[in-house]
Design a protein around this nucleic acid. Structure first.
Ligand SMILES: [Zn+2]
Ligand SMILES: [Zn+2]
Ligand SMILES: [Zn+2]
Ligand SMILES: [Zn+2]
Lengths: 131, 131
DNA sequence: ATGCACCTTGTAGCCACTACAAGGTCAAGC
DNA sequence: GCTTGACCTTGTAGTGGCTACAAGGTGCAT
């Protein structure tokens, strides 16, 4: 498969695939006579793994780790588990932070009664003025 | 005030203040005899405004807009309002996306029964294997 | 032969900082 | 008066995870 086809099959853009090769998360594939990258099913599977992990928000270092672990069939999956749990924790903290933002934004917006800027409760909340 | 003091007063790091000057969201202050930046209360207020807006997740373009609007006292605050509402929408979409991640991660982790990697439901979910 | 989709490389840009490196300034303590 | 140390200056490069060119090569249909 050339890069465009593997891109369609995996949902990872050709440019991103080349980027993954550059940073070493994907090994350089063999080349055709005309110097086009030539991928097999193993590379496609690896890309799908990467994409699913990215969709779950795992970082590139996490994914490298997960890929390495995924090849050691006989080992315990405790590390996989703790990596996933740590990541879940991060996601939960990010959600909590965004909920704080959301609540403050909502409150701020609710107070605004569409007056002039000098009376605006949104600007008031941000500026140092009174309060 | 020198940069360190204004950094302490506003909660914006000195390096970040210099960065803000470079990108033009803060105008260059006057200098002391020894070429140190010399800030007054107006600059500190602007920095606090920026910091509060950043804490609410507003982007730099948003903040530029908010700062400009905040100076036009007599104008209607409709634009401020719609900017804040648009931003709230973005935050809500981000939360929703993270909740999808969280739920999938939770389900994945719950299924794992701490076996070997080859039996691990976390790796299974990511890899192409069966399923 | 011409067009067009596809591929190649390399470089720069995105966002909002953050982290140096290499040097200048100033007050306190000895 | 000399050193120490906190503070300041400039400029440049790095962060993550791509994304967007630019300038050119290849392959196949018409
Ligand atoms: Zn993670
Ligand atoms: Zn308002
Ligand atoms: Zn916004
Ligand atoms: Zn497991």
């Amino acid at each position: 498969m050339r890069i465009g086809e593997v891109a369609r099959k995996t949902g990872v853009k050709a440019e991103t695939i080349r980027f993954y090769e550059r940073v070493g998360i994907l090994t350089a594939p063999s080349r055709t006579r005309s110097n086009y990258r030539d991928y097999g099913p193993a590379e496609a599977a690896r890309l799908i793994f990467i994409r699913r992990a990215r969709d779950l928000g795992f970082s590139m270092p996490d994914i490298r780790e997960l890929l390495e672990l995924s090849e050691e069939d006989d080992r315990s999956c405790a590390e996989v588990d703790s990596l996933a749990r740590a990541h879940l924790g991060q996601v939960e903290r990010k959600i909590a932070a965004l909920q704080v933002m959301r609540d403050e934004l909502s409150r701020m917006i609710a107070k605004c009664e569409q007056d002039t800027i000098s009376e605006c409760r949104i600007i008031d909340t941000l500026a140092v003025r009174d309060r």
